[in-house]
Amino acid sequence: MADAQLFVSQDEFTCSLCLDTLTDPVTIPCGHNFCLKCLTDCWDQSQECSCPQCRHTFTTRPELNRNTLLNEVIKKFKRPRLSSPPPQSYASFGDVECDFCTGKKFRAVKSCLTCPASYCQTHLQPHYEGDALKHHKLVDPDRNLKEKLCEKHQKSLEIFCKTDDSCICVMCVVTEHNGHKMVELETEREEKQRQLGATLSDIKRRLLKREKTLKETRRAREEMKTFSSRCVLPADGDSLSFTITADFSSEDLRKELSGLTKSLKKISQGDIMTRTPSAHEAPVFTLQPP
């Protein structure tokens, strides 16, 4: 028999103590309903035993038993209700189709890794109601369910074996991976994401460092175009050399120019000594210090 429609509002199933939907509802002699835990805590903290809603006082503390009928009604009230699928819920190009629809298929709203199959809202409902199905692992619609199943046991891959660095099913755990280090697949995924995030942060840090170095290099190159070099007076017998530097200030430049001026003055005050070469020698000029 189909479930009867309940034309009630959620307020009728609300506990006046926690202001939430009744959990493990109990009905006291005055007829009011409360959550079992809420009422127990209320009475444990009070010197008198009275109804928190109508203030009716009881001479002895009533025994609190869960109202099983009311509890079932609340379950039905909270259960998602089905409605006729709107036209746009039919599967279109790119959508995952429901595996259980006949004729024109509806768009799948969930895929079950335990079954494995994809379901529209209508055919998914047993997974919310049946005790045998409500513990199945539901995921967003996925057309590649076979890739998420163990090839050997055709069970969903829910465990990650760190020893073998592989995803396995619960059957693999007891048959082939005894004594191995294992974690839940979701736990391993979160750890891998954390490691990836740390790696990306390190890469960004290195890139920023290189960008900073590049900017400094470009700035130094631009500065060396007003000041091209500084001259270093060579020692006796050495050729004239120039040393390029990017790390200097205006004060350094004044010092360098002053030194260069003194060097040029020293050269201008020297005498050039000549020696007459032999027939096979070229003329030789020697700088004589003052």
Rank of each mutant, 00 (worst) to 15 (best):
R189T: 14
H177L: 01
K134V: 03
C15M: 00
Q193E: 15
K152D: 09
Q45K: 01
K212G: 03
F227N: 13
K76Y: 13
K134D: 11
K78R: 10
S9T: 15
S9A: 02
P116R: 02
T60D: 15
S16T: 14
Q121A: 14
L39D: 01
E158D: 06
L113M: 11
E129M: 01
P87H: 02
K215H: 09
E281A: 12
C120N: 06
T40I: 02
T68I: 15
K37C: 00
L264W: 01
Q10N: 03
S239T: 13
D44A: 04
M171H: 08
T163M: 00
P277L: 10
C35V: 01
R143K: 07
L157E: 14
E211I: 09
P87C: 01
C38P: 07
D142C: 15
I168K: 09
A279Q: 12
E223F: 10
E151Q: 13
H180E: 06
F13V: 08
T187S: 02
D20K: 08
V139C: 10
K181F: 06
C115G: 04
E256P: 00
G103V: 02
C172W: 12
T274V: 15
A108R: 05
Q10K: 05
C101E: 08
T175W: 11
S268T: 09
C49G: 06
F34V: 01
S263T: 06
R221S: 11
Q154T: 03
D236A: 06
L36D: 04
L214Y: 10
C167L: 13
C169Q: 12
T102V: 00
S118Y: 08
P85Q: 08
S228H: 14
F106V: 00
P234T: 02
M224W: 10
E97W: 03
L17T: 00
L233M: 11
S46D: 07
L145Q: 03
G270W: 14
Y128G: 12
C172N: 12
S249W: 02
Y90A: 07
H123Q: 05
L70M: 10
A220D: 10
P52C: 07
C101R: 04
D95A: 06
C231F: 15
S111T: 11
E63G: 04
N71W: 07
H136V: 12
Q47C: 08
G237T: 05
Q195S: 09
D99C: 10
Q5L: 05
R66G: 03
E147M: 09
K255Y: 11
L200T: 12
M182A: 08
H153V: 04
M171P: 00
G259K: 05
M273I: 12
F242S: 13
C30T: 10
E186I: 05
R55D: 10
A132E: 11
N71V: 02
H153S: 05
T187F: 00
L185A: 06
C98T: 08
L6T: 10
S9M: 03
Q10C: 01
M273E: 15
S83N: 09
E129W: 00
T286S: 06
L70H: 04
H180N: 01
G197K: 11
F93D: 15
V73R: 05
T217K: 10
C101P: 03
K104S: 12
R205W: 09
T163K: 00
